[in-house]
Design a protein around this nucleic acid. Structure first.
Lengths: 233, 233
DNA sequence: CGTTATGTTGACCTCCTTCAAAGGCTGTGG
DNA sequence: CCACAGCCTTTGAAGGAGGTCAACATAACG
């Protein structure tokens, strides 16, 4: 891990009232007055690609809402291996374990450049008590975490590696319309529970079959229908 | 699925005040007076082995707390396959998705004879609002669901089938002290993401190596230390 | 006792891993 | 501008792990 990868760049106090994804985040139920009252301790951070937002086992003082980009939640195993257990997309919340415990359960890393809002645990606890809307939103996020983790089991850990890769690409938003930037082969492997080589082989095969088409760099456009067909198993 | 498997046997109104596992369940923070006020709509059910408690996609009017036994939560895949995504043990809560949605996300089946308390969704919603202790307990259960699902990814879907089986046996409580009743080979397979035959082969091999020792029926005693060693991978 | 589910085992083959090497891309320094 | 290093990706060859299909054993049950 490069040391400077942990340098998330501070961007100043957030302005939730004008946040473009406000309707999909934790505070969407609050009135402007309520918002003003709690904005002060919320920071807006930029997390460059492959930077570490927080680490598994570290003290967990904050919850993060993802405004743009993708975060991967990785669990490091005692025997040295590691497994990505969830991908977070804009609107998702990272580090909710802080509300019932004191340590992060994962290492959170930006898969692409990401923007997050850092919210002190106390702010969330307080809002959870005073605002039914926030409370409801929190429960929804929690349920979403469960759903996502189980989706990871069912879709990304069941069936042949090829079918799982197809499901991953669909899940990453490969609609066939606009190019999508791909994760590294190593990350794909960690998501699917296969080796980097296997991930590479499958992606190469997909290209040969015309299921994905390299754009530039690691941007690709996908044959959505074809991938969905493969995803069946 | 046998039709009579869905016959869970009603056992009458529950008496939470004298419940032996009251300290570990959802209502542990309530005073006796608060308890009395909400007991009426709570039923106490016995779920015989392999009976279905609720089904994926069905309307979800109730939450269940598990008092004894083990429940498996199964997800049925569109292509006919199925995967067990979580095992619930006494103190765990099933069907929490009812608090933010209206359909069950899994099919819940008793792995062994089980006792559950059925709690109407409205009761939980109400308590969540009025009792901070219940609210806190709910958040803990939710986080526990996430942890369990992720444990399933990391422990039961990563590494060789042998290592995963060893982890499963440890997880099922094989301490080496008293005999444990095993799930069917089919269930083991569905938990580990391998075929029934592979599960059978591995268990047979474990017996030959003396790692597990058949007691009677499908009760076994385990070499806990040996299993933990294998579980490393 | 036959009947039916469940567990066990074998043979074969596919998929994936492992180990190794070669190819591309990027940044750095001469 | 080129050479070189470092990283990621691709590809190959060999072996092993697990899937598939089938036969058989065992236990549960009327």
């Amino acid at each position: 891990m490069k040391p400077n990868c942990t340098n998330v760049e501070w961007q100043g106090r957030s302005r939730c009232a004008v946040c473009e994804i406000r309707n999909s985040v934790l505070f969407s139920g609050l009135t402007p007055q309520e918002l003003d009252a709690i904005l002060q301790p919320i920071d807006n951070l930029h997390v460059p690609q492959s930077a570490v937002l927080y680490e598994q086992g570290a003290a967990a003082p904050s919850v993060y809402t993802l405004r743009s980009g993708i975060l991967k939640l990785r669990i490091d195993l005692p025997n040295g291996g590691q497994r990505i257990v969830r991908l977070l997309r804009p609107g998702d919340v990272a580090g909710m374990e802080t509300l019932v415990g004191e340590r992060y359960h994962h290492t959170a890393i930006a898969l692409r450049d990401a923007d997050v809002c850092r919210i002190p645990r106390e702010v969330v606890v307080q809002l959870d008590r005073t605002s039914p809307a926030v409370h409801q939103a929190l429960m929804q996020r929690w349920q979403r975490s469960v759903d996502q983790a189980e989706h990871c089991i069912v879709s990304l850990s069941t069936g042949t590696a090829e079918a799982r890769m197809a499901r991953l690409l669909v899940m990453l938003g490969c609609s066939g319309n606009q190019p999508e930037t791909m994760p590294s082969r190593e990350d794909m492997g960690a998501l699917l529970g296969v080796t980097t080589e296997t991930a590479s082989r499958i992606m190469a095969e997909f290209k040969r079959r015309g299921l994905v088409h390299a754009d530039r760099g690691n941007e690709v456009v996908c044959d959505h229908a074809g991938l969905v067909r493969l995803a069946q198993g």
